[in-house]
Amino acid sequence: MMSLVAAIFAAWLMSAASITEAAVPEGNDEGWYWISSDDKYSKYYLPKETKATKSAKVADKDVATVIHAWTKTAYSYGGAQETIENYGLTAVISNPGNLAYSLALLEVHPQNRTIEYVQEIFYNASGKVLWSKEYTTRTVKEINSQSFDEDFYTAIVDQIFRHGETDRRKAQDRWIDLWTLTNASGTESCIADTTTMRLKGDNLIYWEWIEKKDTAGNVRSIQFLKKAVNVEMNTERTITGKLWTPQAGWADAEADRVYSAVPSIPERQAGLNRLKAYVSGYQYWLHRYSLDPSKKDVAKDTQMKVSAQGETVVPKKLRFESTPAPIAGRVTNVAEVKPEQI
């Protein structure tokens, strides 16, 4: 009996190992699909190895809840240098010119917009392994506009669902104006990222960008916040986020433990009405990948609707010329960071 148990356990170990070892694709595989490039990084994914590994039955339909996919990142000298420094690998890869590309196995959770790195392998131009790691303690990374992995995420999820994540990420109307306050000291403006929006019950979950400027147009502070707004109760709370000031740079923003009423000033109420209009007009988008059986027949929206207050959403793409550097570039996946959930 014990020998049978041992044999089963050994078979399980071999199966688990095959995910991260035997299944590693070739860096020169012709199936790599280009996603994006800049002066530091070129990103690819492998459609034929992008698969739903877990699903939930929702109204007699399988909805993917876990996706595994392989990605490839090719490096310029600057991208390699940044990556080596951020990963703390200068003793292992002393010359950034030796790092040509890396492969990574990602685990994607579409309902929460999160990814986990399962394995990473760094190579030189000849395909020799320079460094590799299988993550026993994984980083849980929530995807938003500041994520290095955002274009990986949208391509992978589109491969499974084909609901237009990549199109929404690139869309001119990705960001919508919520409110602007003006006083003697300057202006404060808030915009919301529709790419991150989803409904959980009556709670609209999304990321917003609040920028405060003085009268000369200089940015004095930025808040990048994950918000939950209860569109029925007219309440809100900050789940997590970051705060930037010229003096301190980026720091963690304070989260709210409980919901509070949206301020009654006209500008904030106008912002709330815009969010309600978006909820009214884009039910299909807000319930994509939902595991709620009652939402299985939500029709795809074809045009913007208006709320009872007559408020129409006016889309606007983020364009802040004075915005400081991104919160994070190519960062290590070693430390475990779990995003807060409502």
Rank of each mutant, 00 (worst) to 15 (best):
G31P: 03
D38S: 01
T53R: 15
A64H: 14
D60T: 03
Y44W: 13
E49W: 14
E26W: 02
T53N: 08
A69N: 08
S36L: 00
D39L: 09
Y45M: 04
N28R: 06
Y41A: 01
S55K: 15
T53I: 15
I35A: 03
A23H: 07
A16W: 04
S55W: 12
T50Q: 12
A52L: 10
K48R: 12
L13P: 01
K48C: 05
V66F: 07
D29K: 01
A23I: 05
D60F: 15
D62F: 07
T50N: 14
T65F: 03
L13E: 10
A59G: 02
Y41R: 04
E26T: 05
A22W: 10
K57F: 05
A17V: 00
W34P: 06
T50A: 06
D39S: 03
T65R: 12
V63R: 09
V66E: 14
A56G: 12
K61V: 14
Y41F: 12
S37W: 03
D60S: 12
K48A: 14
D62I: 07
T50E: 11
A56V: 13
K43H: 04
S55I: 11
D62A: 15
P47E: 10
D39Y: 04
K61H: 12
S36V: 01
K48W: 11
A69K: 10
P47T: 14
W32I: 07
Y45W: 11
N28V: 02
P47A: 10
V24S: 01
S15I: 05
P25Y: 08
S42M: 08
A64C: 10
D60M: 06
H68M: 13
E26G: 07
Y44K: 09
A69D: 09
S42R: 10
S18T: 11
A22Y: 12
S36Q: 04
A17G: 11
D62P: 09
L46D: 14
D38V: 05
K57Q: 04
I19V: 15
I19M: 04
S37N: 02
K40D: 11
S37C: 03
V24R: 10
D38K: 00
S36A: 09
W32Y: 08
W32D: 00
M14W: 13
T20D: 07
S42Y: 09
D29C: 00
N28Q: 08
D29P: 00
D60Q: 08
V24G: 00
V24E: 07
W32E: 00
S15Q: 03
W32P: 06
V24A: 00
T50C: 15
E49S: 15
A56C: 15
S18H: 04
Y44L: 08
I19E: 11
A52H: 11
E26M: 05
Y44M: 08
P25A: 01
S18M: 08
T50I: 11
I67K: 03
K43F: 03
A69R: 09
A52N: 14
E30L: 05
T65V: 15
G27S: 04
A23N: 10
E21C: 02
N28K: 10
K61Y: 09
A59V: 09
Y44G: 12
D60Y: 05
I19F: 15
A64N: 15
A23E: 04
W32F: 08
A56N: 13
P25I: 06
Y44C: 06
A17C: 01
S15H: 05
D38Q: 01
K43R: 13
A23C: 01
Y45S: 04
W32N: 02
I19L: 13
S37L: 00
V24I: 12
S15T: 06
